[in-house]
Amino acid sequence: MTTTTHDFSGRTLLLTGAVGTIGREIAKRFLASGANCVVTDLDLDAVTSFARDLDPNLERVLPLKHDAGMPEDAERVAQAAKDRFGAIDFVVTSAGLYKDAMVETMTDAQWKQSLAVNLDGVFYTCRAAIPHLAEGGSIVNIASVAGHRGSFAHAHYAAAKGAVLTFSRSLAVELAPKIRVNAVSPGLIDGPMVQNLLQMTGTKLIEQTPLKRLGKPEEIASVIAFLCSSDASFITGASLHVNGGLYISS
């Protein structure tokens, strides 16, 4: 059995945080499904090199520098997407920042930086994209299990992700019925982001996961592709957990 595939040809994805572990798989999946991909990241060299790996002539991939916490960057990338491909069909906010800090000793700067990337960046990107969104379009914001459950030593991250969930629902109502807005909450996904956590906690978290393994970034990308596709045309304002059962909530 293979994953279901979708035809996104002629449609355009605006993806932030594109060189992250999950971001890369999202870009690959949408490109393989025929979409044009505007891939943005804080690291322009990395995202340009990634884009050239995907599409050597950059025919369907446009790499751009994007500091998620900067509203003018969001405006610039949304305008560039519109100028290059005509409209935006899908927005996926994958840019995120996950750093360890206990509340008691967290500095104002640490708090503000986390909120800027994880929350403000989602607002800026969505706001900038809205005027260019094609009817039938879909926004998927990447939240986290931390946004539902909270997270030891990551209160700033968890607070921002919780806010992303309620932001997404609010936006779903504002943009209905023409545009759908949903959130995806990954659990522990194999990649650099979870290495610290696994070193601290050992195998405990995997043992607590009913599927007894980490998720693969492709398993997030496939869920996002579903939510963007017409198969999910009656799904809006929803949040979908992808965590192997680690956190079983409503």
């Binding site: 279901t4 109502v173 496939s222 198969d231 999910a232 304002g237 979908l240 059962g245």
Partner: peptide, 27 residues
């Protein structure tokens, strides 16, 4: 379509969840 997604490999890391297919009704 949501059932077909949940029974496919696309949802291989999704378990224990409830997926609303409600057009945003009640959220």
């Amino acid at each position: 379509a949501t059932y077909l997604f949940l029974t496919s490999d696309s949802a291989s890391f999704v378990t224990g969840q409830v997926v609303d297919v409600a057009g945003g009704w009640l959220m």
